[in-house]
Amino acid sequence: MSPASGTESDPTRKQRREQAREQRRAVEAAAAAQAARRTRLIQLGGVIGAVVVIVAVILVATSGGGSSTPKVGHSTSDPEAKTVANLLKGIPQSGNVLGNPNAPVTLKYFGDLECPICKEFTLGAFPTLIEKYVRPGKLKVEYLSMETATHEPEVFKTQQVAAYAAGKQNLGWYFIELFYHEQGQEATGYVTESYLQDLAQQVPGLNLPNWSAARNDPALSEEVTKDAQIVSQQGFTGTPSFLVGKTGGTLTKLEAPNLEEASEFESAINKLLK
């Protein structure tokens, strides 16, 4: 009996030990797996958190939100600012150039921001040209300064440089368009520092401290002077004046008596696009 029971009990004890060992191993493995899973979940949470923060920063930096949101005066909810934003949204800008840099046709627009006839063109024929040629990448428009309606040279330079300073953030056309849309009565001295500041605050995404700093850049002031030299070379006498031609080629004067209709511009551009 006893030897028999001994042979039966020995393997059982061994088996029990083995079972206990296996159970211990299993528990340890389960604990290790759980710890690894917890670590992975923490890492996943960290990555998701970092991605959310990065995307939020990009959103704020590219939306003109935060500090560059208009603080006083007008806002993009104003009808004029909204019109301009809708007109220009999605169109690339580089300095004073509106449109695809590789557009086959170039139009140079010589204007004075206080000139009411320029306003007539900007609000008349120009939106059609933007939708029909600039937005599809067929035409790029460069804005140049020519003093006509602004009687004080200093004021002229200040306002044109203010637009070029916005151009340094590739938002110059917002400033130009807003200026024309909100243009005051000629020779009433309405262009003051607060007027320019107010306009700048309506430009979506404009970094105001950078804009203010750029206004002191002598290169922008020189640009206005260079524009005047081109004006005198071309013999222009009034604003708006235009040069048009194939990009990279010779530009010729474009006479358009009716600035509210785009037809004369269209026929000139269509010829160049053929």
């Binding site: 590219t62 599809p136 990448g137």
Partner: peptide, 14 residues
């Protein structure tokens, strides 16, 4: 032209 509009928009660069 919507692809082109997106490709040439102000948001086509970061």
């Amino acid at each position: 032209g919507s692809c082109e509009e997106v490709q040439t928009s102000a948001y086509s660069k970061l």
